[in-house]
Each structure stands twice: as structure tokens, then as C-alpha cells.
Amino acid sequence: MADMPGGDAAGGDGSAAGLCEPIDSIRPPLVRLTVNLAPRAVEALDSACVRTKDTKTDTVNRALVVYSVMLEIIERSGGRLTLQTRDGNTETVFLLI
């Protein structure tokens, strides 16, 4: 299809035949946050980034989601979490906050 005036060949309006939505309608806007980390937290962040090869932003985002899940577990089960390892052993962790 040839380029049309006022748009492109795909959809004439800059979208791929009208199938693409603006990014703002797909996910909420990002929030910029400045934090002061204690030395122990910096070490934990750096270690996690090295181990996962994720960025600091991705690591902090994931950590906050995990923290939220941990709070839910504490509220629901009194902080008791039982994990099963790959070899079938179980380990119980008590979460204190």
C-alpha cells in the first residue's frame, strides 16, 4: 500500500492499521522515587543484581512485589512459610516484621 497523505502506509494515522494503542493506555505511568539505602540494603541490591543480571530498577520493583506477598502471608498464616526444595526436602521459614 502506498503512503497516504497525513499518515503512513499501515493505518494512515501512524498506527499499524489501528491495532496499536498508545503506551499510556496499556500500562500505568511510571513513578520516579528517590531512596536512601542503608549499607546492608545496598549490598543486598548489588548482590541481587549480579545474581539475576537485572537492573537496579527491576530488582527493586521485584523486591517490592515480593515484600507485598510476604506481608500477605504473614497476615494470613501468622508468618509461617513452608518451602519445598527441588530434591523434595521441606524447610519452614518464620517471617517476622
Rank of each mutant, 00 (worst) to 15 (best):
E75N: 06
A41L: 11
R80F: 01
V65R: 11
D8N: 09
L37K: 02
T55H: 05
G11H: 05
G88D: 11
A17L: 05
N61S: 14
R51T: 01
L37W: 07
V93A: 13
G6C: 05
R86P: 11
D8H: 01
L81C: 01
R76P: 08
G14I: 01
P39H: 08
G6T: 02
P29C: 11
D8C: 13
I26E: 05
T57S: 10
A17N: 03
A9P: 03
I23H: 03
R80I: 07
M4P: 09
E91C: 13
G18V: 01
E72D: 10
L64E: 07
T57D: 01
D3R: 14
T85N: 10
S47N: 05
V66M: 14
M70W: 02
A16V: 04
D3A: 13
P28A: 15
A44W: 01
L83W: 02
N61C: 12
A38V: 07
T82R: 14
N61R: 15
K53H: 14
L83C: 03
G79Q: 00
L81K: 05
R86I: 09
V60T: 04
K56M: 00
G6I: 00
G7F: 04
R32D: 12
R86K: 13
A2Q: 08
L96M: 12
G12K: 02
S47I: 05
G78I: 02
G79V: 00
V31I: 14
D58L: 13
R76E: 10
N36A: 13
G14C: 01
T85E: 06
L19V: 03
S68M: 05
T57P: 00
V50Q: 06
N61I: 11
G88C: 12
T57N: 04
E21A: 06
S15C: 00
V69I: 08
S47L: 01
N89L: 13
G14K: 03
I26C: 10
V93I: 15
K53Q: 15
V35A: 15
E75W: 00
V66W: 11
M1F: 06
L37C: 08
A16F: 04
R27H: 10
P28T: 11
A63Q: 10
T59E: 00
G88M: 14
L83A: 01
G88V: 11
D3P: 15
I97T: 14
Y67I: 09
Y67W: 13
I73G: 01
S68N: 10
